[in-house]
Design a protein around this nucleic acid. Structure first.
Lengths: 345, 345
DNA sequence: AAGCAAATTCAAACCGCTTTGAATACAATA
DNA sequence: TATTGTATTCAAAGCGGTTTGAATTTGCTT
């Protein structure tokens, strides 16, 4: 039995035209029922799969989604939430047969990377990660007319675009107010780099809760930095070293919270007893805590779900480009764990 | 000025044939120097980029590398080292113009996912992540004649293949012997799932060090599980609860080590004083510790570098398929931090 | 100035699929 | 049975590049 590697061979093998075979396999209605059965059975048996390259060229669609992650030269951090986000998105792509194209782009070339992708016609759409407060990428993508979804938002941009975001403002408002209700008055916020949109939103939520409760917001209680474990540690050490240390600390990620805990314990204190810690929790698979009472009180929101929904929204937009742009706001749950306690005074 | 979107238009614009323009852009020697200059200048100015889809079909090459990550239905963990590995590989792909295709595959379809990829002719090669001790994927890929590189090894497989791996056996041998030299005699190993090759190699190294030093290897000191933070925590609690708790613990990853530390501190002990901890450190960007004395004594090996080297090896193999298969063994550094101390007895 | 090899350029075929427009087969109608 | 309509099938023309084999220039020789 000769090897069937392309449509032509399959068509000849069946004594049919390529047209008919192609249509039979792609579910066109004008093919005789019986013929279709035969064709499908043969394709199955001979393990015929249409060549992806040829298909892409012929249809003019890439059947691929680009994820462009910008990598800064200075601080080369790969966002740890990335893997879980991708896992969620990927699940959705598989359902519709899209491939996932990943490009890590040095951020000085970022804009041109998008133009290239379009010029090369390599993807049908892209997902934007960690947008800035006024992210130039959105404008560029709209100009290029390439469908895209932002994971997060770009508050100061006046572009129209699709996005999927956690309600960071409210989550951190609630987190802060929760601590205030426990009697805490000096609450620190160990946040990420200020050029990221979500960092700003979180700060806003935090400050709104303070001012609503007539607590003076001390800027010295707000720290910003690359969200690593050592950063959490250094932040805790620095905060506890203050003349008046905070009685509660809010962390922007579990990784940071882990560092904070380390700093606290190294200072001879105990988290949840001497000082409260509340973290945002992206529900990453390798931090998932199955115990009855979670270690950390946290605002939890699954980044994997965000990935799935972003992918879903993007696919809808690709398949119907005139679809109005949509924003999806995910609410975080406030989960009570054992890292928070009423303030002792 | 009309928009130049394809070769034909560019050729007409220049009054040249497609052939010549194509050759000028692709650096063929038989093009007049002056002509080439003109063509290149025009392409640059008009921002002409050859259509990726057409190019792939015409050349028969996908210019894409597949990373197939298997996701188990039961324990849906995305390996946290993945992001950094990809970052390293991506840097290498960019140098040679390859795209990175990422597929998360439910592991029951794993083998067929590879066949599909080949049948669809979607990638020029693949990277295999976290191989098992006798991984069926290697045989399959060799049969399919698709170039690949394994990140790690498959000890019991008798296939011939490219691989890039850390010398896990030696790293853990050294780690264990280091602790023994400090006087430790009961050393626990908190390792990953036993179906992964590197887990087995690490166990082997650990055991070899014990037996070399005439220490009876107690299997009860070897724990296996999904390498998460909570797993590290539970392991520490369980170990410390033993009638004779270990005086030192070796952790298979920083995340696990963090959990172990949490368990230790929760038990009222102090890591590095009451009990020693030594971890393997993949040098992940979000754990990178810039302080003078690292927190953890660790066997350190950059997974990002492994990513870069794997990509490099794969590209070499793709561009020269007859190239003999190669294995690259990376040695881990033993970095002394403050989590280890001589055993008190 | 003719002759010939080397340097350039070009028209056309090809990669493997989809899709258009025409052709053929079959069934129903008059 | 001739006619008309509908269901199927097909040959050929793209998609946008690369590559083969032939044609045209150009540069030297004699």
């Amino acid at each position: 039995m000769k090897k069937i590697t392309n449509l032509k061979a399959l068509a000849e093998h069946l004594g049919l035209s390529q047209t008919t075979v192609s249509r039979a396999l792609n579910g066109f209605p004008e093919v005789n029922h019986k013929t279709r059965q035969i064709v499908q059975a043969a394709a199955q048996k001979l393990n015929y799969k249409p060549n992806a390259r040829a298909k892409r060229l012929a249809t003019g669609r890439s059947m691929a989604i680009g994820h462009l992650v910008s990598v800064s030269k200075g601080h080369e951090i790969v966002n740890p939430i990335f893997a879980d986000f991708i896992a969620g998105a990927s699940a959705r792509y598989i359902e519709s047969g899209y491939d996932l194209l990943l490009s890590l782009v040095p951020d000085e070339n970022e804009l041109s990377a998008y133009s290239d992708l379009v010029a090369r016609d390599a993807v049908d759409g892209v997902i934007i990660h960690t947008p800035k407060e006024d992210d130039p990428r959105l404008k560029r993508l709209n100009e290029l007319n390439l469908p895209f979804v932002v994971h997060g938002r770009s508050t100061k941009s006046n572009e129209v675009y699709n996005w999927v975001d956690v309600n960071n403002e409210r989550a951190f408002f609630r987190a802060t107010e929760f601590l205030i209700d426990l009697g805490h008055r000096s609450i620190a916020l160990v946040n990420g780099m200020t050029d990221m949109d979500f960092v700003i939103r979180r700060t806003t939520g935090y400050q709104r809760a303070l001012s609503k409760n007539d607590i003076e917001s001390q800027t010295s209680y707000i720290l910003n930095g690359e969200m690593t474990e050592p950063y959490g540690y250094r932040s805790a050490i620095a905060l506890l070293d203050r003349p008046i240390p905070p009685t509660a600390i809010i962390a922007s990620s579990m990784l940071v919270a882990n560092g904070i805990r380390r700093g606290i314990e190294e200072s001879g204190l105990k988290m949840g007893r001497d000082i409260s810690v509340l973290s945002h929790d992206d529900d990453l698979s390798y931090f998932r805590d199955e115990s009855e009472v979670p270690v950390y009180t946290a605002t939890r929101s699954s980044v994997r779900e965000a990935g799935y929904k972003s992918a879903d929204l993007l696919i809808k937009t690709i398949e119907n480009p005139t679809r109005p742009r949509e924003g999806i706001l995910l609410e975080a749950n406030l989960i009570i764990g054992s890292s928070t306690r009423p303030a002792v005074r």
